[in-house]
Design a protein around this nucleic acid. Structure first.
Lengths: 374, 374
DNA sequence: CGCCATCTGGACAACGTTGTCAGCTAAATG
DNA sequence: CATTTAGCTGACAACGTTGTCCAGATGGCG
């Protein structure tokens, strides 16, 4: 259809006004644009020619600026409809200096944890008339940098970043140049910037304390790579809870690494099946890990207690229900976006560090007593 | 930090070359730009001035074009680093006519079903050097149109749309103007365009037939709003399976409407608790509905068979496992993105309609016999 | 009837980049 | 040594829009 229909703008373009043909005739070498452009879309110039008005008048109508007679406005609107004109926002952006778009770089668009965060950011952006450009870093610092800088080159007005790397000094020139950046979930590395995150330390400590309160003394911790700030924070919480209860921590009870199911499964099985001091409970460092461990535990006869960081859909319908330390991803996103737009509206001041509380949701899996309890 | 550091470009900008000051002095009224721009970022002009070269030479270095002496290149690169220059892609887009970005409009960024689709599209876009602009239509046709047209105004090179509305004639001028659009999951309304979708009819028919094969005769169908194409297709599949088995369908067994939990719950309870001919099994039209129905069934004593359209995480770990008609969201996204980029690369021809097969995954919930079986 | 105030419309530059083309320098050749 | 040739470099226009400013028209009033 699109390729059989005649270009509707062709007629409009060919009847160019050319009020003074003698003036530019024979002077221009008339370079033909090498590559096709936007399918030869009509421009304001075309609309102006067709409506028999000036360029700026079309601009005024398009932007609903005052100072145009109803009759002129009608003529312009007719021309717009007839030509199928739509303002080219690229040119507008260039002229105005603001793109009305923000970038959101997260770890994985497919991770259900980020869905509500993504959506919350989108809603705030929408309320501010901004579009959202998305990208996944895939937990790769290089890819994060590549993406972030590509977004800066697009001159997004601001950025929300869930950092994958631990060194963000590469952003200093950008921030100095006025790009607003808010980090979410984890603080920026080596620079001081706005951060909105959950209380990983406190949440993990509470979760592990919950297991201890139910009689466990040998508790495993399976978490994300040590490069990831939340992973080490949650590990810190684990150690704090154990220490506060006066419990020792064996080296084999702690496994940090990729969240790939195979790695997690191996780690879980190793600490569960150890001949010497197998764990009776596991604390998992994020939703990806939790889901894999749930699978591992489902295959076993001996009951093992589990508390996971991050809530997830259907956690309550599993048997037993999975006890989790819940963080509110939507609020995380909303808070970050609000902060970003307040910066864009000119709010100054030192970088703020917002820390949201977590919530322990007991559902059963965390209340299983240790299998070796006497 | 950002606001205390001195603007690094100030020095570079002030030492403008001005080779012929007499020429334009006193002629320009020197209008001050009313609103702040990109925080006064340095431009190629600034870099050129600082490096003592021409504008085009900077452009050549930035774009790694051949024909620059190593020495010149070094000088330019030093200036770039010193000034913290980053090319303004908005201007580049305006000049080149291609934005190297595509838009993806889906129903809800937070819906886990779309996560893998989103990610798959992103990966393909990335492979083509394009960025991804995202938006949720929230199943609102007006919002879909608003978003899509905003993306067209940005001159995205192409669009992938999961349509919320059932009339897309508003896109005709855009498509005629050369915007490539691929619809996913559901066909476009009232226009002929590329579509990539799953076999809703066949999948639903197979799912319902599965329930019939396990002895059910009174089967309920709870689906999305009738405006949504997949909802009616799946309902058609339901009717086909019932008819093929020679089973009558009572009016109260079919409930189309919003996927809001409250509505779904009411619909499920109504057909399960009907005094006259309560259903013994339910077929659910999409993952949102399925999850709610799983919750409803979990509260009941009498076992009810369930088959749902769409797979979802942990479906296998519920008790019983949830039997589903699975569609591959990632392949859906990948296929659509491939098709889009092939169009952008100039592939012509009639709109293609790709239909992907679904897969019945039996896990237990669909194999529960009817409670009234003798 | 003439003048002034008000309002509408249009010409033009500028945003920052890239494509075209011409000029210049330096090396290579006769 | 003169001349060609190739390789670098830079001036300039153009992309489509918006902000500024001026000119012309319109209407009211003296």
């Amino acid at each position: 259809m699109a390729d059989t229909a005649p270009p509707p703008s062709a007629a409009g373009r060919s009847q160019s006004p050319s009020p003074s043909p003698s003036q530019d005739a024979g002077r221009l070498p008339r370079p033909v644009p090498a590559q096709r452009r936007y399918g030869n879309r009509p421009t304001m110039k075309d609309v102006a020619a067709r409506a028999g008005v000036g360029l700026k008048t079309v601009s005024r109508v398009v932007n609903a600026e005052p100072g145009v007679t109803p009759d002129t406005e009608r003529r312009v609107k007719e021309a717009i409809d007839a030509l199928g004109f739509r303002r080219n926002d690229s040119a507008r952006v260039l002229r105005k200096g603001r793109t009305a778009s923000i970038g959101l770089v997260l770890e994985d668009l497919a991770d259900p944890f980020y869905g509500p965060l993504n959506r919350a950011v989108e809603e705030i952006a929408r309320a501010h008339g901004a579009l959202l450009i998305n990208g996944s870093s895939a937990e790769d610092p290089d890819r994060e940098q590549e993406l972030v800088l590509a977004l800066c080159a697009r001159r997004v007005d601001g950025l929300i970043v869930i950092p994958a790397g631990d060194d963000h000094r590469y952003l200093e020139p950008e921030m100095a140049a006025g790009v607003a950046i808010v980090f979410v979930d984890r603080p920026a590395g080596r620079i001081d910037a706005d951060v909105v995150r959950s209380d990983s330390f406190g949440g993990a400590r509470a979760g592990v304390a919950h297991l201890i309160a139910h009689g466990h003394r040998r508790i495993g911790f399976i978490g994300d790579q040590p490069r990831v700030h939340t992973a080490t924070e949650r590990l810190r919480g684990y150690h704090a809870a154990m220490a506060e209860a006066g419990l020792p921590v064996a080296e084999e009870w702690v496994a940090l690494g990729s969240t790939e199911p195979k790695r997690v499964r191996a780690a879980a099985e190793a600490m569960l099946d150890a001949e010497h001091e197998p764990v009776t409970a596991v604390f998992t460092g994020n939703n990806r890990v939790t889901v894999t461990v749930v699978r591992v535990l489902a295959e076993r006869e001996r009951p093992v207690a589990l508390v996971g960081f991050d809530d997830f859909e259907l956690a309550d319908l599993l048997v037993p229900g999975v006890t989790v330390v819940a963080q509110d991803a939507a609020t995380l996103g909303r808070t970050a976006a609000d902060l970003l737009f307040s910066r864009l509206d000119g709010a100054g001041g030192a970088p703020s560090h917002v820390v949201l509380e977590t919530r322990l949701v007991a559902r059963g899996s965390g209340e299983i007593p240790p299998w070796d309890a006497r």
